[in-house]
């Protein structure tokens, strides 16, 4: 007598699919939203009044070591205007915003050429600052 072997059916467990999908969604949200200049070391200047800054097309930063960065990549003041023109392209006025993050102790001889380059590229400048904490 031949006893037939029972056939095993292999099914992929789909129980955790919802969780996996959710985690993937969060992963891509982080990738999309994470700031690519978060590694730059700088301390913002403090002023009396600030407003929430609108989203920008490009971000220019000067760190505590006086190095200039465009969207997280090191660059020079001389080439900044050209690079910004490429990024901003033919974008209409109002959507040509450029965030400028300057370390609080940076001297004018370093940050003024950067402001000039942003202006030359036709960028709408927004200084990223902090509200001055009131003394207690």
């Amino acid at each position: 007598m031949i006893i037939q072997r029972r056939q095993l059916t292999a099914t992929i467990p789909t129980f955790a699919m919802g969780d996996i999908g959710f985690l993937l969604l969060i992963f891509f949200v982080i990738l999309a939203r994470v700031q690519n200049d978060s590694h730059i070391q700088w301390v913002p200047a403090q002023v009396e009044e600030v407003e929430p800054a609108a989203a920008a097309r490009a971000s220019v930063a000067i760190d505590s070591g006086m190095k200039i960065y465009l969207d997280g990549r090191e660059t020079s003041a001389d080439s900044l205007a050209g690079q910004l023109e490429t990024i901003l392209g033919d974008a209409p006025e109002g959507s040509r915003r450029v965030h400028l993050k300057v370390h609080k102790d940076t001297p004018a001889e370093r940050f003024e050429p950067v402001i000039e380059a942003i202006s030359e590229a036709g960028g709408d400048l927004t200084h990223i600052l902090e509200t001055k904490e009131s003394e207690r």
Partner: peptide, 21 residues
């Protein structure tokens, strides 16, 4: 992941400046 997202989407404050070209 939740705290990472919170940290990365922290809004920034600043001051707009109109400069002539």
């Amino acid at each position: 992941i939740f705290f990472l997202v919170c940290a990365s989407v922290q809004p920034e404050d600043g001051q707009d400046q109109r400069l002539p070209r």
